[in-house]
Structure formats: structure tokens, C-alpha cells
Design a protein around this nucleic acid. Structure first.
Lengths: 215, 215
DNA sequence: TGTACATCAGTGAACGCGCGTTCACTGATGTAC
DNA sequence: TGTACATCAGTGAACGCGCGTTCACTGATGTAC
């Protein structure tokens, strides 16, 4: 017995072509960076005329926003999947690193140089908050590290970004350190700042994680 | 008695116009990002014709490379000046933060999303090494933190990036943590990832510095 | 001090390019009776 | 099952734009005698 059809063939075709356009967009970004992304070039690569893409996206800006959204989405999905599989904070760290190395340009679409004046749509901000919630949960599940500095005190009264999460301030602090430290290593690594230095960035990453966990 | 003239008026004029071109370039980068930098737009803003700029730069690429070089140079100078004035590692951290906040786009020209395929000229790499040396000196001057993990062992045999610096591996380790952690906070802050979260990034920065110093 | 010449900053026209985007259209696919 | 119609994917021409860059030139500035 076939499943009840909730999508028409045309809808499925549209979704497929949209996905194909995005794939070519990612290839182009990987080759020359996001600022070089061009609708006409994508169309040419797909064997279509430029204007045809306007059936699928309102224009270049909408396509880029969609790619940014997908990048945030894939990060949040990776974290949720890892947490769902029982990963602790160390597991999330490796999830993050794997996600970053899997596609550096995707990473930079989330964390890279912002375009002055650009503001991401609200739904993207919400996806980012999902990611943060997973991290917060993992931090709250760890034995407390007893952090009690000025920043912990500050977080007591500046914690609305945690969305009502019941974790103590020390856990919020650790979540932010987790995020910023690992991002520090990853972004320097992916940007090539370690190139030619000769040490293994994976070991620096691991050392930063150890420090985070008080090991 | 006038100083002996080592530069001709023409040379001085050239240097001045070159500087003015760069200033307008920075303004344009601040307004729309480095990828939007255009020679013609700069010329128009200066009340000149486009081709006139070719008297001063070989082309767009040379101008951008020069801006990147200046960005690295200004960072290295800031660090050397701070160290020369007796700053310790904490002082260097504040120097870095001040330098970053002073001109976010300059920061991103150094640390931002790399253009695939672009490789900085060797002299720029050397300037970066200068900066690292200042950090290493400050780390070596601190009381040892006794770090002895796997990464410290790795650094024993992977320290050529330190350019023969006699500091122990633990100091090299701390230098890399200093660099990556502070960069982590600063780049998230400057990229606007903390926007709307409500806490004060300066306090997170200070907390990361404290952790670095074992406080 | 004056004249002849070389240097060089800057102009304006022109080149070819690729971009995003619009528009009126063709032709295939799907739908209704 | 067949016909009439609506939907919609995709085309090709065209628009205006700004880009980097070249080239032959004008005119001002500096230099040499």
C-alpha cells in the first residue's frame, strides 16, 4: 500500500531542483568564497539560463540567506543528534570539530566575517539558540566546577539568553567558555593561521577541551 | 637648520596620496566589507578618475594586500609598544582587545574568513611571527604553570614555529591558549554573535584572561 | 634668471566582462470535465 | 479515453550597472644647463 501522497510530483521536482541549486552554490562558495556567489554562474553550471533560477529563489539574497539558514540548521542538528545519542560535553566538542572540518566554508558562513549592515532573520537566531541549549544541558550535567568569579556574578543577573535554563551561573559560564574557546581554535585552524607552524591543531583543541573540563 | 632632505616633494606627495587612498579604502571596507572594495569608487570619493589610482597601486589586488599588511603591521606595533612599555601578559590581552575594538574590519582582515586560494606574501607571515614572539616573551616571563599534558609533550618536538625561543613547552602552550581563547571571544563579539544575549563580552574576556593566568 | 627638456600626475575615452534582474514568450506537464 | 484549459518550468533578449584595466593624451612640476 503506497503512502498517502502529501506532495505532488511538481512539488517534489521543485524541491529537488532547489536542492541542486544549493549544492552548486556550496561548490561555488567552497571555490571562491561566499562573496563570489553568482546566480548566473550556478545556472550555467546546471545547464540552465540565469533567469530560470528565479523560479526557485527570489534572488541572490534569498539564496544566500537560505544557505546561512541551512548552515545553522546543520550545526543544530549535529548537536541534537549527538546529545540524543548520549554525548557529554566532550562528545559535543568533537561533534563541533567534526562539523567544522567537514565543511569549512559552511563554518564561516555561520561564524565568519559579518557583512556590515546585514542582520540575520529571527528564525536563524532561534536555531542558534537551539544549539546553545544543547550545550547548556551538557554543562548542567557535569559536576559543578565551583567557578565564582566576577563573570559568574554578572551572569546571575544577565542570563536571559539562557532562555530560562535552570543551570547555575557557573554552568552558563562554562558553556560560554566552551563555545568561545573551541571556536577560537577552530577558526584559527580553518582560517589557516596555524599553517606552517608545524604543531597539530587537533592536540591544541584537545588540550583546550581538557582545560574546559578541569582535567 | 633644516634637516637634510631625504625625500623629494614629489615623493612626499606620492606618499600622501597613497595614504589617502588607503584611508578611503578603509572607510569603504568599514561600510560594506572588504569584498566590496572598488578602485573606481575610491577614486570617485577622492574626486579623481579611476585610472589615476594606477599611478599609486598596481591594481586592486595590490591595494588589498597592502591593507592586509598594514593591519598585521599595526597589530605587531601595538604589541611591541605595549611590551616596550612593560606590559605583562594581562597587559597584552588588553592591548589586543583595544586593537580589535578600535577597528573591527581591520581585525577581520587579519583573522576573518579566508579567500580560498589566497596566500599572504611571506613578509606578512613574518610580521605575524613578530606578534607571536612578543606573546611568547610575556608567557616566558610568567611563573611556570606546570602544564604537562599530551599537548605540552607534543610541543617539545613541534616548536619550530617559536623560532628558537628558549621558553619551556608549557609557556608555548600558554601562548597558543592566549591567542586562541582571546581570539575566540573577540571574534564572536565582533561578529555580533553575542548581540542580544545581554551579558557583557568584556567580562567574558576578563574571565578568560583570568583562567589563562591561573587566577 | 631664463630657457629647454624630462618627468610624472591625472584625464577621458574605450574595452570587455559578468552581474542581478525584468519581461514576453514557448512548450511541456498536470487537471477538470 | 479524449479534449480543453490552466499551470508552470525554462528560454532568450534586453536593461542598466559597475567593475578592473589599457591607452594615448594634456598640462603641471621639477631639473639641467
Amino acid at each position: 500500500m503506497p503512502e498517502p501522497r502529501t506532495t505532488t510530483p511538481r512539488e517534489r521536482y521543485r524541491a529537488q531542483v532547489r536542492a541542486e541549486i544549493k549544492e552548486h552554490a556550496w561548490e561555488q562558495i567552497a571555490a571562491a568564497g561566499a562573496s563570489a556567489l553568482s546566480l548566473n554562474a550556478i545556472a550555467k553550471r546546471m545547464g540552465m539560463s540565469g533567469p530560470a533560477l528565479y523560479r526557485y529563489f527570489d534572488g541572490r539574497d534569498e539564496l544566500i540567506t537560505e544557505l546561512v539558514r541551512d548552515a545553522y540548521r546543520s550545526q543544530a542538528d549535529a548537536f541534537r543528534a549527538a546529545a540524543g545519542a548520549g554525548a557529554d560535553l566532550a562528545g559535543l566538542a568533537h561533534t563541533l570539530r567534526a562539523w567544522a572540518l567537514d565543511d569549512p566554508q559552511r563554518y564561516f558562513l555561520v561564524y565568519g566575517t559579518p557583512v556590515p549592515g546585514y542582520r540575520a532573520p529571527d528564525d536563524i537566531t532561534e536555531i542558534a539558540a537551539e544549539t546553545m541549549t544543547v550545550i547548556l544541558d551538557a554543562c548542567a550535567a557535569l559536576p559543578p566546577d565551583g567557578s565564582t568569579g566576577a563573570f559568574d556574578a554578572h551572569l546571575e543577573t544577565h542570563r536571559q539568553w539562557a532562555g530560562g535554563h535552570p543551570a547555575p551561573s557557573a554552568a552558563l559560564h562554562r558553556a560560554l567558555s566552551f563555545w568561545s574557546r573551541l571556536h577560537g581554535v577552530l577558526s584559527l585552524e580553518l582560517a589557516g593561521q596555524f599553517t606552517g607552524m608545524g604543531f597539530d591543531p587537533a592536540l591544541l583543541f584537545a588540550a583546550e577541551l581538557d582545560a574546559l573540563l578541569g582535567r
